[in-house]
Design a binder for these strands. Structure first.
Length: 759
DNA sequence: GTAGGGTTAG
């Protein structure tokens, strides 16, 4: 550094003072650092160089050795620098080699070290010539015989050339043969780079590990860091589970020598760690790097904040913000994007708006002011839509359409369209769709999917099919998502045929189904008890490289239970076990209720115990299945006991279905007097009776001819907006007309119709 | 011998 600066800025005098004889021979003796090009020669050498070169121009057998000897070996002795100057101007390596041999034979000096720089030139010239692959190795072997030591530059050059030419064996030998003093950081860097490129990872790391030992002479520098980190950062290696922890350790080891990966690589590491559930590790890594003095930018912190946000680790998020402030790392628009998004995801939309207001006014937020961008707006609009405030979201759009510096994009419209579709306002969604087209904002696959899905969810399946067709014709494609919505919609109305048709249309049009499409198909088919079709789709799902999830298995198990295929149920359960998927409470409930249905209460109880042992709490459905089973078995007392136990001992609260089962069973048992208090119980617990509940109790009351409570319940039924069905009307009509209370019934029907038309 | 972090549809 000092030499180049002086040479460029100061006079020749200083160059002479910093002269190469002293400097260069010093360097050669100590071999500690190495100049890429030797310093300029002494001034009076210049004419010597020219003269020698002239003498060397004629064929070597005619060299005038007397004159050469005079020029080179009279006092002072030839400096390696001068020789270097001469040799590097020779036209070929063979010429330089001849010159080297001449020096060897004619030198009066006993040592060979002063020839090292000339040898270096031979290597340099040879490396640029064709055939260098074999030549260099031969030259290297010869130099060993001649006992001329390598300069560091020679060693580096040879290693590079061997490596470049795939002579891995040769450069390994060379490296092993080098003296310790030549195996400095620069040489090691070259070796590590080549070993890694040749795939000899273990060898490379052996060379590196020495350097990482604190007591070792040569420590890693930024070049070492660059080689290792860029190798590590190759996606496939970074993603490997078994190396992630090692990478963190390695980075910290480098950090002890003040060598750090650049900001981009640190960000990548943080991102990978975070997305693999190692957020804390990422957090610790950043903190340690800061302690070691790494200059960190905002991006790695943004990556970490994203990971912490995903983990809902609000405390650490705050800590990170504090640390950033301490380290004077200013949050940027992305940091705010993360914070606002996080607030939105937790439905804290007003807090998010507050952060935005402060940004927007250019007020200081945490000491900095940052201009919001389109992503910030989109995040807020989405946040508003997600909590049903899509009108406000639309207001945002209108307000900012008038501003020059911000224009909405496809995402903006997608968020709003989704918001309106979710609220059932398909027309508004379609209006926005037209508007974006007019504004020249191109809809994407998400836009199409959202609208198709919205229509499907609002019972407009036919329009959804039509819309999708129309868009496909216009070149706006949906994807598997849209088809999944359609398939789901058709299943919902029990149109299995149409659902399958859509599935095959999807295949015809070249869309490959994703896991969710398969899940929906399997679920629909299982519900329709078409277990053969469901099974064949299960195979297709597996063939496509997907794996069924627990709900998918649950659907299949339900289907097989309905078909009494215990063999297949067992098969599914063992499949799950093999795949390492734990049954959830729905799986257990399905099995329990099946056992109950076939009257095997003993097994049902056993499964329930297993469920509790697996750490799952029985749910209201579990108890409901048991209660129903005991009721069906005529053991209403047993059933009531389970019900009371559940109420007293567990956190499970009854639902309408549970009461339905009990009330119906009690009424069937002609125990309506026991059922009536349960109606009060429901009221007290805020459980709304449904039509089935009323039907059951009306039936029970009719058996006992208890008119008064029945008439009271008719009023409650209307008040609670519970719609009577034809069963209700059938029971009441028969009974009330028999006892001459037709007026009451007429009144009941009128009030029901009035309330129905009001909604 | 590399290019990081925030927004949208089941």
């Amino acid at each position: 550094m000092s030499i180049t600066l002086l040479a460029s800025k100061h006079s020749n005098f200083i160059r002479v003072v910093e002269s190469c004889t002293i400097r260069f021979s010093f360097l050669l003796r100590h071999l500690s650092t190495e100049p890429a090009i030797p310093p300029p020669p002494r001034q009076n050498d210049d004419s010597n160089v020219e003269q020698v070169l002239q003498l060397l121009q004629i064929p070597d057998h005619e060299w005038n050795t007397t004159q050469l000897n005079h020029l080179l070996f009279s006092n002072p002795a030839p400096s390696p620098c001068l020789l270097f100057q001469i040799a590097r101007r020779l036209p070929s390596s063979s010429q330089a080699l001849k010159f080297l041999k001449y020096l060897q034979y004619n030198s009066p000096l006993p040592d060979t070290q002063f020839l090292s720089s000339t040898l270096q030139t031979v290597f340099e010239l040879a490396s640029r010539e064709p055939g260098s692959r074999t030549n260099l190795y031969e030259l290297y072997k010869a130099s060993k015989e001649w006992n001329i030591p390598l300069t560091i530059n020679s060693a580096t050059l040879l290693i590079r050339c061997f490596g470049r030419n795939g002579l891995v064996e040769e450069f390994s030998i060379l490296f092993d043969e080098l003296e310790h003093s030549l195996k400095n950081t620069q040489v090691r860097n070259a070796v590590i780079r080549l070993l890694l490129r040749a795939g000899l990872v273990d060898k490379a790391f052996k060379v590196l590990d020495e350097m990482l030992r604190p007591e070792f002479d040569y420590h890693p520098d930024n070049v070492t860091g660059h080689i290792i980190f860029s190798w590590l950062m190759k996606r496939e290696r970074l993603g490997r589970t078994d190396t992630r922890e090692e990478i963190v350790e390695l980075v910290l080891k480098f950090g002890k020598f003040g060598v750090f990966p650049n900001s981009i690589w640190i960000t990548q590491m943080v991102t990978v760690l975070c997305s693999n559930g190692k957020t804390i590790k990422a957090y610790d890594l950043l903190l340690e790097l800061m302690t070691l003095g790494a200059a960190l930018k905002v991006a790695p912190f943004n990556a970490l904040l994203t990971g912490l946000g995903r983990d809902k680790d609000f405390n650490r998020m705050n800590e990170v913000m504090v640390k950033m402030k301490e380290m004077d790392i200013e949050p940027d628009v992305i940091t705010f994007g993360i914070i606002i998004n996080h607030l939105c995801k937790f439905r804290k939309i007003d807090e998010a708006l507050e952060v935005f207001q402060r940004m927007n006014k250019g007020q200081e937020v945490g000491g900095v002011s940052v201009e919001p961008d389109v992503v910030i707006f989109n995040t807020l609009i989405d946040g508003l839509c997600k909590v049903g405030r899509q009108e406000e979201g639309l207001g945002f759009l209108e307000r900012f359409k008038t501003q020059k510096e911000w224009s909405p994009n496809t995402v903006t419209y997608n968020c709003l369209i989704h918001g309106f579709c979710k609220a059932g306002e398909i027309e508004r969604g379609l209006q926005l769709f037209d508007e974006m087209n007019k504004e020249g904002i191109v809809p994407n696959v998400i836009t199409i999917n959202t609208l198709v899905d919205g229509m499907c969810r609002n019972g407009r399946t036919a329009s959804a099919v039509q819309f999708l067709d129309e868009m496909q014709r216009k070149g706006l494609k949906g994807n598997a998502f849209a088809y999944a919505s359609l398939i789901n919609a058709f299943y919902h109305v029990n149109n299995i045929r149409k659902a399958m048709e859509i599935f095959y249309q999807m295949l015809r049009e070249g869309f490959s189904p994703d896991a969710i499409v398969y899940y929906k198909l399997i679920s629909g088919l299982s519900q329709a008890r078409r277990m053969d079709d469901a099974t064949s789709l299960l195979s297709k799902l597996k063939e496509s490289g997907f794996h069924p999830d627990v709900s998918c298995y649950n659907d299949l198990i339900t289907g097989f239970c309905n078909k009494n295929r215990t063999d297949k149920v067992k098969e599914m359960l063992s499949d799950m076990e093999k795949a390492g998927i734990n049954p959830d409470s729905i799986t257990y409930n399905t099995l329990i209720s099946y056992c109950c249905k076939i009257g095997d209460l003993e097994v049902a109880q056993k499964i329930m115990k297993k469920m509790i042992k697996a750490g799952l709490s029985p749910t209201v459905a579990t108890y409901g299945a048991l209660v129903r089973a005991y009721c069906l078995d005529g053991k209403v007392d047993e059933a009531m006991k389970i019900f009371r136990d559940m109420d007293a001992a567990s956190k499970v609260t009854s639902n309408a279905v549970m009461y339905d089962i009990l009330i119906e069973s009690l009424c069937n048992n002609n125990d309506v007097e026991l059922a009536l208090p349960l109606m009060d119980d429901m009221k007290a617990k805020g459980v709304k009776p449904n039509t089935a509940t009323y039907n059951a109790i009306f039936k029970g009351l009719r058996e006992k001819k208890w008119l008064k409570p029945a008439i009271e319940l008719m009023d409650t039924m209307i008040e609670q907006a519970c719609n009577p069905d034809y069963v209700t009307l059938e029971i009441l009509r028969e009974w009330l007309s028999a006892v001459g209370e037709t007026e009451k019934l007429k009144n009941f029907v009128q009030r029901y119709e009035a309330s129905a038309s009001a909604t």
